[in-house]
């Protein structure tokens, strides 16, 4: 009996904790990343690549890679990123190669999209 009660209480705490987590900014941004991956029908390896990219570039939002083509351009310099797959993802998200997609004159750091917001 005690065991059942304990299990129910643990389940309740877990649900409550989950609902709290769901309201965190961190969770919402990750959620948005996965939702966008689903929208673009990216396979598991592409998702992993983008996540890795967002970590390595230390982007404030993981979904930023979907918005700013400079992120994929920057990924070309990274030895850990397989170029063929990068090209595939880039073509799916932005349509062209990362060099072409990246703004030619832009020298801004894609790691900090808020930098120019001041």
């Amino acid at each position: 009996m005690m065991g059942i009660l304990f299990a129910v209480a643990a389940l309740g705490v877990l649900t409550f904790a989950l609902s709290l987590v769901r309201h965190t900014r961190w969770y919402q941004h990750r959620q948005l990343f996965w939702q966008l991956c689903r929208q673009h029908q990216l396979d598991r390896s592409s998702r992993r690549l983008l996540l890795q990219l967002s970590r390595q570039l230390r982007l404030p939002f993981p979904a930023w890679v979907f918005v700013d083509p400079r992120c994929l351009a920057a990924a070309q310099q990274m030895p850990t990123i397989p170029p063929a797959q990068l090209l595939q993802v880039q073509a799916k998200l932005f349509g062209e190669t990362p060099e072409q997609a990246a703004p030619p004159a832009s020298q801004e750091n894609p790691q900090n999209p808020n930098a120019s917001a001041g």
Partner: peptide
Amino acid sequence: TFQYLTRTDNPAAVELLEAALDCP
């Protein structure tokens, strides 16, 4: 991407879009 960001209820989308306003 932007179609989805427009219609999603996820509040993170707003944050992302507002950050995109500063995109060069």
